[in-house]
Nucleic acid binder design. Structure first.
Length: 566
RNA sequence: GGCGGGGUAGCUCAGUUGGUUAGAGCGGUGGAAUCAUAAUCCAUGUGUCGGGAGUUCGAAUCUCCCCCUCGCUACCA
């Protein structure tokens, strides 16, 4: 048994998560955490909301709220949504917590002490009417290259050229529309990444065998281009005030304290039960901790370069990422998810339409691992109807109903294994082996495809053995077949648990069992598992596990969630 | 503009030490079965592997050029 530290990229508090966010880091991290627990590892799985930065301030102002209250409100919305999706965080914290402040201050002090912090003056746009500095992106104007009148200060979306906000014609504040702007000089603190480059490069190189190509190549690209000092402070109110003389009126840049949030949140977790929890066991001079991070592809540079460099610069022995899972994006009905255009399914709504497991299964079976992947309601309904209802749900139903009506609602007597049974067991052993291998390698699509194949084998087995025919001439053999089928159902529940925890519980409950007692995959032996149910054990057929999605419902959903391209 | 990912069957996607007839699931078609949720099982694929050129006995795979698409480009996060 080893210690597995799992983190999901911290969702930004301002805005509600959609399916793309769910599959981009939250769900895969949960499936992985659940799987690793089932393998008997000690798992710490933390996440939380990333709260600092301009968008929070602007969002709060728009709602006429205090920034802290605003963040708490949205933090709670995130928390509720993830709970509804059954994300099994050990702790869901906040980057604005006192614990994170403490960590951020400590790490900054270490960096400063070690000579990795320097002052630089930079010029930035100040909006007099908004009474605030504007990040480049918050300045809008006409693109000097193509004349597009809604170009942002960092890049023109129309011609894709990279811009400086001062290049814009007729610049205005994106927040208020005010044109009353001026360039002001302001002092900031920079992390001297060039000094850490060598050390960082060596560290990245040591990770080459373990990181996926995408992550490794992105990190290499940054190193190849040469690291520049990175500004880690901002002229904002909302954030941790900088703990250095002369900079007290500034706050740390959100990307400085956000990844430190993984540590801060762990401390939040530990502080709730200090007798039994120790954050250092996971993060500082930690032994035997295997750290796996999940994030969208856009987050890779921060997790492979800035954050590790920050930790290296402290001179202390912080736990750094071992495996970095970068996910691509999910598209929605051929386009992008867009809150402003009301296109796409958001987590809060998704859960009102269908049980979490429908989404969890579909999203993981179609996870954007190698490249972007597409969500459409047709695909979703197809999978729910075929895989969940047809293959898994119907198997459970046909086996239980047949047993109940022909023999009674008890697990019938097992018999001597025949060749067809032995083959089933051998296949099961092999496929579970593959499933586990894929899970361990974080190849979710492959893992789920294997899981599905295991379900298919059950249907295959029953149609080959034909217990409904056999029972007329050889009731004992029919009982033995059904015994095997019922045991398969139990095994399917256990195997499905990381992906579909509710369904797993539901299935086991039919046998009066629960996942707490039996959800283990350690040293899986098909031979033993196929005999796990006690003969004579009562079961209840109960209601169907899943419901089909009717064609009319699909059309309704498409209309409701803006499938039509605008 | 630069860098990186992706472009494979009607649809969604697998597929690198270069190697026999390029794969899976879905959908379609045909059949079987009647235990089950009109569910299941079996059979069924002549695809310009984005386009062009090259290396090679041999290229989806390696090299070069081009096209489309997504992302990043250090001040959105």
């Amino acid at each position: 048994m080893s210690k597995i530290l799992v983190t999901s990229a911290l969702p930004y508090v301002n805005g509600v998560p959609h399916l793309g966010h769910m599959v981009g880091c939250l769900l895969p991290s949960d499936v992985y955490a659940r799987y690793m627990r089932m393998m008997g590892h000690e798992v710490l799985y933390v996440c939380g909301t990333d709260e600092h930065g301009t968008p929070s301030e602007v969002g709060a102002a728009k709602e006429g709220m205090d920034v802290g209250d605003y963040c708490l409100k949205y933090h709670n919305r995130h928390k509720e949504a993830y709970k509804a999706f059954n994300l099994s965080f050990d702790y869901f914290g906040r980057t604005s917590s006192d614990q994170n402040k403490e960590m951020t201050y400590h790490i900054f002090e270490q960096l400063d002490k070690n000579g990795f912090i320097e002052e630089q003056s930079i010029k930035q746009i100040f909006s007099i009417d908004d009474n605030r500095f504007l990040p480049d992106r918050y300045v809008t104007g006409t693109c000097p290259h193509c004349g597009y009148d809604k170009a942002r200060g960092d890049q023109c979306e129309n011609c894709t050229k990279v811009l400086e906000p001062t290049e814009l014609i007729n610049p205005r504040s994106t927040i208020s529309g005010s044109t009353n702007l001026e360039v002001r000089e302001t002092k900031h603190l920079f992390l001297k990444l060039p000094l850490l480059e060598e050390k960082l490069a060596a560290w990245v190189k040591s990770k080459e065998p373990f990181w996926p190509d995408v992550a490794y190549s992105i990190a290499q690209k940054w190193l190849k281009e040469g690291l520049k000092p990175r500004c880690i402070t901002r002229d904002l109110k909302w954030g941790f005030p900088v703990n250095k003389k002369g900079f007290e009126d500034k706050v740390f840049y959100v990307w400085f304290d956000a990844p430190i949030g993984y540590i801060g949140i762990t401390k939040q977790w530990a502080d709730e039960n200090p007798q039994n929890r120790n954050w250092k066991e996971w993060w500082l001079d930690a032994k035997d901790v295997h750290y796996v991070q999940f994030m969208g592809k856009d987050n890779v540079p921060f997790h492979s370069i800035s954050f590790p460099a920050t930790l290296l610069g402290t001179g202390e022995n912080w736990t750094k990422v071992d495996y970095l899972k970068g996910m691509s994006y999910l598209t929605f009905e051929g386009g992008k998810f867009s809150k402003s255009e009301n296109r796409g399914v958001f987590a809060e709504d998704a859960i009102k339409e269908f049980p979490a497991d429908y989404w969890r299964y579909w999203l993981m079976a179609n996870a954007p691992e190698a490249s972007d992947s597409s969500f459409t309601f047709d695909l979703f309904a197809g999978t729910v109807n075929k895989d969940l209802n047809g293959v898994l749900g119907n198997f459970v139903s046909r086996v239980m109903k047949m047993t109940a009506s022909k023999i009674g609602s008890v697990v019938p007597q097992a018999g001597e294994l025949q060749d067809v049974d032995k083959q089933l067991i051998a296949d099961l052993q092999e496929k579970v082996g593959n499933y586990c291998k894929y899970m361990e390698n974080l190849e979710f699509k492959k893992a789920l495809s294997e899981l599905r194949a295991i379900w298919v084998d059950g249907n295959n087995y029953i149609s080959v053995t034909e217990p409904w025919t056999v029972i007329k001439t050889d009731p004992q053999r029919a009982a033995a077949i059904l015994n095997i089928c019922l045991n398969l159902i139990r095994i399917y529940a256990v195997l499905s648990y990381p992906v579909m925890p509710e369904t797993a519980e539901k299935i086991l409950a039919k046998f009066g069992l629960n996942t707490k007692e039996i959800a283990s995959l350690k040293d899986f032996s098909a031979e033993k598992e196929i005999r796990a149910l006690k003969e004579g054990q009562q079961f209840e057929v109960g209601e169907a596990l899943f419901e089909r999605i009717a064609p009319e419902k699909i059309e309704e959903l498409k209309a409701k969630y803006g499938s039509e391209k605008k």
